[in-house]
Amino acid sequence: MINKIKKGDIIVFIGVILLILLISVITFPKSDGDVVEITVNEKTTTYSLFENVTIETNGEYNNVVVIKDKKVRVSDARCPDKVCKNTGEISKKGQSIICVPEKMIIKIKGGGKIDGIAN
């Protein structure tokens, strides 16, 4: 009975499993907390929290956003109130940096412990 499973069957079986794993690695969405969304003037661009990148926001004041070492901050604020820069670094799911003059919302995607802040 055991001999009915041939060597070829096992190879095909392992092959199928490997293929499924490969497909799921490629297509499986990144987890929420790894994605940084930057919205300026209604236009949203997404970045990975794992990349090291410097972004000019191209709004009215063209602020500079830096993603580095899994943290996001506004490194240079040319807007009048600098509230965005003063917020400092964010790194957790659901955290955000908002700049009203620049009409900019930076958000680390996903639900953290806090769903919103009354303000």
Partner: peptide
């Protein structure tokens, strides 16, 4: 929330410039 738990709404820390700083929720 979709997971049937209540929403957690933070109360802003009025003396911290960090927009994400709260005194509780």
């Amino acid at each position: 929330k979709p997971d049937k738990t209540p929403w957690n709404v933070g109360i802003k820390d009025p003396r911290n410039d960090d927009q994400n700083a709260i005194i509780g929720y």
